[in-house]
């Protein structure tokens, strides 16, 4: 039995990012994963292989749509062409939810195809929250915003990243996709405490976790999604489960993509950690969810 906050969809288990390298293996083996997350933009095409596989795999698994182009923090007008395509794809996929990133991707009609960090200002909170509300109204549903890995911070910032994330989520009444790896990477890059970050995020708005590997380049870390999850991120995930409960979780791998079996083993570790922490009664301490 699970009780979740009124805002949230109940726990959907442990999932993976759907990548084309695994299309055939997924259809042939029907691996036991709770759900798949797809990168929205990969399927905003007319047809052919991408949409064909998407439909066939969707027939067997719940899916979440995860975008990289919303540019919710951008200062160009929202891209109505993108939003219409997003809504049309959502009608086809019927996703469990739609997420994107708390970032901007370009200005003056340029797309940098990157998740650029925002300055954490009052102005940016109002600006982003207004855009989130407009997107939610257009899509007819709440969206999830994900914290990004960042490699720079601004003199202009007036608050911490977590204060900014929480302020946007509350003002826009949207949900949070908490990327545990991104918290770790950004905390390392900005010399902050990742556990302070975790403790500041409201339990009732966290719908999903991301886990991933990154690169340690000595003086800084880059969110590459091309390696297994490292131990400090597993430790932080354990702390996150203690605080947030068994949140719907998935692993992202976008480069050096290993056989599906290898990712399933890694996903098993996430499941094991969640089971250990829930069995120990740690969830009750969160006071927000009770598990039996």
């Amino acid at each position: 039995m699970t009780e979740t906050s009124a805002l949230l969809t109940p726990h959907l288990g442990f999932g993976l990012g759907l990548r084309k390298e695994h299309y055939d293996a997924v259809l042939a083996d029907r691996p036991e994963v709770g759900w798949f997350e797809v990168i929205t933009e990969n399927y905003l095409v007319g047809g052919g292989k991408p949409l064909d596989y998407l439909d066939r795999i969707r027939a067997h698994y719940p899916m979440a749509m995860h975008g990289v182009s919303l540019s919710i923090g951008g200062t160009d007008p929202l891209d109505s062409g993108y939003l219409k395509a997003l809504k049309a794809l959502a009608a086809r996929v019927e996703p469990i939810w739609i997420s994107d990133h708390l970032c901007w991707t370009g200005v003056g009609a340029v797309n940098l195809h990157d998740l650029m960090p925002l300055p954490y200002t009052e102005e940016a909170v109002r600006h982003v929250a207004g855009r989130v509300r407009a997107v939610q109204e257009f899509l007819g549903r709440r969206i999830l915003l994900e914290n990004v890995s960042s490699y720079l911070s601004y003199h202009a910032s007036q608050m911490s990243e977590w204060e900014f994330l929480v302020a946007v989520a509350e003002e826009a009444d949207c949900l949070i996709l908490l990327d545990i790896n991104n918290i770790y990477v950004s905390a390392e890059n900005h010399e902050l405490d990742p556990r302070t970050y975790l403790a500041a995020v409201p339990v009732e708005r966290v719908q999903q976790f991301h886990l991933a590997g990154h690169r340690d380049l000595g003086d800084y870390r880059i969110d590459t999604h091309d390696e297994p999850i490292c131990d400090p991120v597993w430790d932080l995930y354990r702390d996150a489960v203690r605080r947030f409960g068994t949140v719907t979780t998935m692993i992202e791998r976008d480069d050096h993509i290993p056989p599906l079996a290898e990712l399933l083993t890694e996903l098993g570790q996430a499941e094991r950690i969640a089971a250990e922490e829930t069995a120990s009664g740690a969830l009750d301490r969160s006071g927000n969810r009770a598990w039996a």
Partner: peptide, 25 residues
């Protein structure tokens, strides 16, 4: 001038992470 440095990484190096990533992608 808009970007903070950390004890290990100066502002320019931090901006370069994005500039290099952009071209690579």
């Amino acid at each position: 001038a808009r970007v903070l440095s950390t004890s290990r990484v100066d502002a320019r190096t931090r901006l370069d992470i994005y500039a290099k990533g952009y071209r690579l992608r």
